[in-house]
Amino acid sequence: MALKENKRYYWLQLKEEFFTSKEMKLLRRLPGGNEHTIIYLKIMLASLQDSGKIYFENLGHDLAEEISLLIDEDIEAVRMTLLFLTNKQLLTTKDKFEFQLEQVPELIGSETASTRRSRKYRELQKTLQCNTNATERNGEIDIEKEIDIELDVDDRKTTTDTNIQNYYQQRIGPLDGFQFQQLTEYVTSDGMEVDVVIRAITEAADNGKRNFKYILAILRNWKQNGIKTIVQVEDRERQRIEQKANSQQNGHNSQHQRTNVPIWSTEPVKTEQTTEGQAKLAELFAELEQMEKGED
């Protein structure tokens, strides 16, 4: 049930200049250019949930064969499209198994199932509003305001989700769709602030731990300790620093409490005498001798 409620829908948000860009003009001028353009758009759509990534799973002869099965297009047309995209650096790879469509991350649009339901409800209310009297309309306007508030919250959530994804990729590296879902569930399901997730990413990066499991371990620990806000994270860090300082101070004090002998008694005795001191000591000895003779 939770997965169904948190389901996210994705779409492409093409910029106004998308089809007038040099790359797209060149693609459309190829033989069968319109077909290649459609293939490119279908590949982008297939990659949305993974932020523009497509994978060669070694099931087909090559990536073109697997993509053609996925989008139901001619294999040779797909191969020609992939060749063009690779040549123009619109499709890149480091290991020949994971590929990145470079334009996709900035073209992704998304919304949660909750946002979609709210938007459709608002559209329905606007339709019904046309058929009501003035009094009923005033009531419906209030309802619409409440729905707008809910939509604004979901829109902010979409923005913060993007912040998590962008920040992770900036500090750690590539983030696939499943990893992205795991991070955002700490916000959507566990009620953590987005800044808490970002702080976990920061701690991992600052400690040289560019490992997704390390970040999950931090978040899991905070969740178990009931930490959900950035204020709680900072309070915990302050307490840790204070405890460490107190521990060091107590250890220093305990070293002096192990014995009752004063510290000065353990210091080495200075046996050296200055010339002036030796002369004074000789005078005292001489006086002592005179006193002893007098007594005799």
Rank of each mutant, 00 (worst) to 15 (best):
L183G: 06
L27V: 06
N253C: 10
F212A: 06
I141H: 06
I198N: 04
Q249D: 15
K228F: 11
D155R: 11
N138I: 10
D148N: 08
I227R: 06
A204H: 03
E292A: 09
L124W: 12
P262R: 11
T135G: 08
T188F: 14
V233F: 00
E76N: 13
R171F: 07
D154Q: 12
G208V: 09
N87Y: 14
G139C: 01
T135C: 04
I201T: 04
I201L: 04
D190S: 15
L284N: 08
Q170C: 11
K270W: 01
A204S: 07
K270G: 02
K270Q: 08
Y121W: 05
L69N: 09
K270C: 05
D206S: 11
L26A: 11
T160R: 10
N225M: 05
N87Q: 14
V187R: 03
F285S: 08
I241R: 07
F180D: 14
R28Y: 08
S254K: 14
L27T: 01
K270F: 06
K7Q: 12
G191W: 12
E35T: 08
S51L: 06
D195F: 15
G60H: 02
L48H: 01
N6K: 09
E144V: 11
D62L: 01
L12H: 02
M291L: 10
Q224T: 14
D161F: 12
E185W: 10
L3W: 03
T162G: 12
T20V: 11
E144F: 00
S51P: 00
Y10N: 01
I198F: 02
M44W: 06
T132W: 09
W264P: 09
L45Y: 12
Q125F: 07
I241G: 00
N207H: 10
V194L: 03
Q100R: 07
W222T: 09
K223F: 09
E146P: 00
G251M: 15
G139K: 10
I149T: 13
V78K: 02
Y55A: 04
W264T: 12
I218T: 10
E295Q: 05
T93A: 03
Q243I: 13
I143L: 09
I149F: 08
C130K: 15
L82P: 07
Q232Y: 01
L82Q: 02
N246L: 15
L41Q: 05
A134I: 15
V153F: 11
L288K: 08
G32F: 02
R117H: 02
V153I: 12
N225P: 07
